[in-house]
């Protein structure tokens, strides 16, 4: 039985800065990292592997340098890593991305039965949280997003029981396998790789699937398969560092002003 973990290599958005003068994005020197949310997905996959004996395959769609991220997955204990890379996959929105990933999972499923697909909640560059549901819908898997705890996997009955966290409540859900699980950061603490594993990962194989291998229709993938388009980008109006009133002389007034400001900006809803 196989767990497929989907990861993405993303620019480290915490390092991205906006030039205060020109308003353009300063990306220089910003490294690509494994999407932080995906590290929890990988960790959960590895824990399930240790507990139930799954194999873990990690897939990622991206440019060739995504290999670095996949090697990191190998160093943490993934059994197999597959890079989905082709110029035809480029420029994809979530719809076109989930297409390639779902097809890759299908392809993996031909060799070994897929029990679960585990994704991170969302990526830090796109923040959409849509690829997971996209994969689940395309594959017809049970869709379990916002999972903060996997309670039990019943391999005989092919069922999984998870806890989902929604606004103001948790939900205990039971679903049949195969399932797509998108996990929250609170689900675990990702491990740190050992050095022998890192050394092993340096020259372990990274399988490359391009569209020749995948054979997908060009109008369903990449830019052409994307339903959304970006009209424009601009830098957000940022409010930073406003000192409110004179809190030493008149704390009451400062407090009132602050609450008013928060209400005005819709930050505080009373």
């Amino acid at each position: 039985m196989l767990i497929v973990t989907c990861v993405k290599q993303v620019p480290d958005t915490t390092q991205v800065k906006v030039d205060p003068v020109t308003g353009t994005l300063i990306r220089e020197g910003v490294p690509f990292i494994i999407n932080p949310f995906d590290t929890y997905a990988l960790e959960e996959s590895l824990r399930l592997k240790e507990k139930y004996g799954f194999r873990v395959a990690v897939i990622s769609m991206g440019p060739p340098n995504t290999e670095v991220t996949l090697r990191k997955a190998l160093s943490l204990g993934a059994d197999e890593v597959i890079l989905l890379s082709d110029r035809a996959f480029g420029g994809a929105d979530t719809l076109a991305t989930s297409m390639v990933l779902a097809e890759a999972i299908k392809k993996l499923g031909k060799k070994d039965e897929v029990a679960m697909v585990i994704c991170g909640r969302q990526t830090i560059d796109g923040d959409t949280a849509q690829v997971g549901p996209g994969i689940a819908t395309r594959l017809g898997y049970s869709q379990l997003t916002l999972v903060d705890h996997i309670e039990n996997v019943d391999l005989n009955a092919k069922k999984i029981r998870v806890r989902r966290r929604l606004e103001g409540r948790h939900e205990l859900v039971e679903a049949p396998l195969p399932a797509m699980i998108a996990v929250l950061r609170e689900i675990n603490r990702p491990r740190y790789p050992t050095v022998p594993m890192r050394i092993f990962a340096q020259d372990a194989p990274v399988i490359l699937w391009n569209n020749k291998e995948m054979g997908l229709r060009e109008d369903t993938i990449g830019l052409k398969g994307s339903a959304t388009q970006v009209r424009k980008i601009f830098s957000p109006h940022r409010e930073k560092g406003e000192i409110i009133g004179d809190g030493v002389k008149d704390p009451q007034a400062s407090a009132r002003l602050l609450v008013e400001r928060l209400k005005e900006k819709n930050i505080l809803i009373l």
């Binding site: 719809l95 959409t128 949280a129 690829v131 549901p133 996209g134 997003t145 929604l166 606004e167 339903a227």
Partner: peptide, 19 residues
């Protein structure tokens, strides 16, 4: 919301439309 984003992702994929 958690629910809305769970649902919208599935609906958009099924309808093959932009979200």
């Amino acid at each position: 919301t958690g629910l809305g984003r769970d649902l919208a992702g599935a609906v958009a994929t099924k309808l093959n439309t932009g979200l």
